[in-house]
Design a protein around this nucleic acid. Structure first.
Lengths: 168, 168
DNA sequence: TAGCAGTGCTTCAAATCCGAAGCAAGTAGA
DNA sequence: TCTACTTGCTTCGGATTTGAAGCACTGCTA
């Protein structure tokens, strides 16, 4: 009974809702562009981008990929399967750990990534960046980066070992 | 076109990726809380919130809801069906337009919304707002709001209204 | 070495999601 | 009024997503 008034300022609410909606709309638009340009889903693009742009040798373990992209393990397996079927990546058992799987981008994967990237960037530019000044963009990055780090470190699951719910 | 090499600054990329990841993680966390607190999906919660908090008389047309929430029409039909089945909303033909459908939140829906809201706000607070100063939050809202408006007004996805019959 | 818990990924069944097609009601132009 | 087009929503089929359960390999401990 002593719950402090769980309220949010209009400003806080505005930031929260705007964030969710902007991300949703942006993701939607990008997803459509990717579908048309290279028949890729957003997740597939993220995986290719992570392998082709971030990873130095073009490969990474499944778990690292799943952590980078906000995604379930089983979903990652599914998408990696699709990508492999399309010849864009290759899966092989990890060298040092036999139960791990290393995903590696192929030349075809890199080619598709290059093919899709310009349109992708254009969408991001025209939708997200255009109404912002360069200074605004920098501010946005400076504000969101610590939030991301905070979220990454926050335990999403075992955060509430407080009450028990009898329903399942 | 005249875009030579559409590249993005590291800063721009950082803002873009941080935005997507923050929204994804936040949505994930919120979704989990809502599922536990009231067995609601995020979309269902958004619909209830829009009806119970924003709408003056607790009702809205399907299309307005779909526009507010970033969602497909058919998905909205599905979710509205689930909500109606659970007794949280009621659907009825619109008064002025016979083909429209008006969705109205029920008392049970309002009750569930109240029940779920505190935890929801707590999650948003602890994940999104905590690492930001009040001033930061205000800045964030000020930056994102025009972006949202810009995206709403220029969606290329609905640029092609509907295909003619017999043409392909 | 055996036993056992932990980790990494996949499989499985079920839920959810979307686009296209379809249906019904409104609207404009003859 | 009639006809064609538009709009609002639902239905349908198929693709995607998820948590739980399962399988295989590691690492720890005795």
């Amino acid at each position: 009974m002593s719950d402090p008034a769980p309220r949010l300022d209009p400003v806080q609410l505005g930031a929260y809702f705007a964030l969710i909606e902007v991300a949703g709309l942006l993701r939607h638009a990008v997803e459509q562009q990717l579908r048309e340009a290279g028949n890729l889903s957003y997740v597939q693009f993220q995986l290719l981008a992570r392998l082709g742009l971030d990873a130095p040798d073009g490969s990474a373990r499944m778990t690292d990929l799943a952590d980078g992209v906000v995604y379930s393990r089983s979903g990652l397996t599914y998408q990696a399967g699709l990508l492999e079927e399309a010849g864009l990546v290759v899966r092989a058992p990890a060298a040092d750990d036999e139960r791990g799987v290393t995903v590696t981008i192929t030349d075809a994967g890199r080619a598709l990534l290059e093919q899709v990237l310009p349109g992708h960037i254009e969408v991001v530019n025209s939708l997200l960046l255009q109404p912002l000044s360069p200074n605004d963009v920098e501010t946005l990055a400076r504000l969101l980066t610590p939030v991301r780090d905070h979220m990454r470190s926050a335990p999403p699951r075992s955060a509430a070992p407080r009450r028990r719910r009898g329903r399942s």
